[in-house]
Design a protein around this nucleic acid. Structure first.
Lengths: 201, 201, 201, 201
DNA sequence: TTTTAATCGAGACGGTACGTCCAGTCTTGTC
DNA sequence: GACAAGACTGGACGTACCGTCTCGATTAAAA
């Protein structure tokens, strides 16, 4: 008689609440944004803030790191569209998109997360894969195209170029404010020019 | 006549044991080196490892961060002696001294610490002051001297140059190994040359 | 219609484990019986002995006194059945039941507890209410019945009589052994007779 | 030659300060009188209150019990002078002297001490010897004299009589207030008469 | 007068237990 | 079954005292 059969068999029982999931992720990001570091973060605090039982969290994530990694992934900024007019313009676009974030919470969370990333192996792994790697690939592509078009030196090691570009950006991101160097909208061009031209006269 | 007067009057009571202090710091570094992150680190474990009462720790440091900051400070690598022959040689010396550390434990601890640093405000502050800032000053001095002697472009923003040099080094330090770029002895020159010459042909 | 309503609504969440509660009380009594005084008793030792987390203890009792008071209450010896044949027989029954306790642990615990009782106000209060007062009431009833039936002097102050009976018993209980006066089975009658007849010829 | 010889050779070095000793005992009694039980009492608190180093306490007493026992001994009330006119008068004098104490602190301390006494073996032993036993001997002497003079029954067991007298007094001392029975000046006679006459008509 | 030696106060030492907090798991009744 | 609520064991937290141990400074008899 009843041979009703879905392809991906919907499991019996009450389905998991998407609302709860969203509330948990939001609560996690809120708490991080409020200055709570990843290790100060407590599952209990997240559950309370999200109005959710601890079980509901542990049913979805094995531990805090998994949860935080997932939560941060929801913030990953997509690589910005590149004008493509020149290597310089593309890099400026990338630098600018890195520095500014309209959403204060997101920037705050990203900064905190970056700092803690390498203490939490699985967080690191996931976070790198979803948020860092795509950006790296984009920069790498620009560099390689530049070498091909002759805009960049032909003997350049792409990885080293990458290190210069991203390292400088990250350094400024982290220490810049304390040095009177902000990554404001007009600063992108200056930074990119310095990298392109080098220090020697 | 005898108005002899000690400058800093020794406080009453039994003086604090330097041996205990040393044991605590060593235990802390050992545990960090064994892979225990700063937040996994427990005062009780440190006390047990050091063969010391918890009180003896709390008498000296208000909390874990203070202790870790102090412990890390004992590892601060001195800025290497600079040859002074040229900006290039000086920078190579600085880059090389950053990459390598004979003591495996120290390198391990430093790496872990750097990663966690900005999650612990006071740790950060102290650590920066004692271990980062001296190095920054050294690089800055080299850059400024280079501008003065004409070895570097005269229109260079010293802070921006700093960001390029240190940012690149830190990036390579952190991500380099995973990219096939090690900061080995011969690599220093390549990196410094790339920075000095820039990416443009 | 269906306005069915339980009087005391069962609270949400997992109910407290009766097994744990029992284990805690037993562990407490065991430790006291093993000679540990109330103040030597440590919550940690109780938790370990009971195989229970400290939290589980603190969830139920605010502090050591509350726990000990409750634990002792479980030992309260019921007032023995009184023959009722005469005041003398009833008092002998009461005196006898006080002296002997088949359960060595219980006697030990009671003795220790009695000694410490008045140092712990709340312990005292609870312990008196549950273990002392019923006995007092029983003696008082016997005395008052004796006055009514003419077995005791009609001008007797019942409270004073009570003091004589129980004070003498307690004194013997505490100091008797050191004076060659035990409250053995045959002794009850002698004591009661002395109290009834007075010291005067 | 040097035949100089003191009987009790005064030891070399600075003699112990009597002032410190007195201050320690006073501080101990003060703290007990302020409601601190013997086990709540801390050596550190005593030292602080007495303005004395902990060493100075431990040099004189091996532990808290020894100190408390000694401190209480300084409060021992002497057995009152007995009129000697009759057993009844003597007992009344004894009962009265037990109930009242001009010094509120002393009474308070005694009450607390009595309650805790048997939890601290050495305290108990010393306290009994110095404060309880003399009184017991006095009562015993009165009883034995009474038997000899015929004021008391000739077949009386002196120890049992003792138990009745002191047990009743102690019971009233402890529980009396809560029962509306105080050991005030006029009450002594009533109590003694009840004991002497017995409960039977 | 100068030792010499035991005392003093202060306070650090290695420990034990405190009462709190949270992790990660388990157990209810309801949806 | 998933859900919230909340109990469970376990373990680190930072505090308070324990009884012991240095310290430099007194203090008084012996040399």
């Amino acid at each position: 008689m009843s041979n009703q059969q879905t392809v991906t068999a919907r499991p019996a029982g009450r389905p998991r609440s998407e609302k709860a999931e969203k509330a948990i992720v939001e609560a996690t990001l809120d708490l991080i944004a409020e200055g709570m570091g990843v290790s100060e973060l407590s599952i209990e605090a997240i559950a309370a803030r999200a109005g959710v039982g601890k079980t509901t969290i542990y049913r979805r994530w094995a531990n805090k790191e998994e949860l935080v990694a997932d939560a941060l992934s929801t913030l990953k900024r997509p690589v910005p569209p590149l004008p493509g007019s020149s290597v310089r313009d593309d890099l400026i676009a990338l630098v600018d998109s890195m520095g500014g974030d309209d959403n204060a919470r997101n920037r705050c969370v990203m900064n905190i997360a970056m700092g803690e990333a390498d203490r939490y192996p699985s967080l690191m792994e996931r976070f790198v894969k979803r948020a860092i790697e795509p950006r790296r690939q984009a920069v790498l592509a620009v560099v390689e195209r530049g070498i091909a078009t002759g805009e960049l030196r032909s003997d350049l090691d792409p990885q080293l170029a990458l290190a210069m570009i991203q390292g400088t950006m990250m350094y400024l991101n982290k220490w810049g404010p304390g040095l009177g160097l902000s990554l404001g909208p007009e600063a992108g061009a200056r930074v990119v020019d310095a990298i392109l031209d080098g220090l020697a006269p």
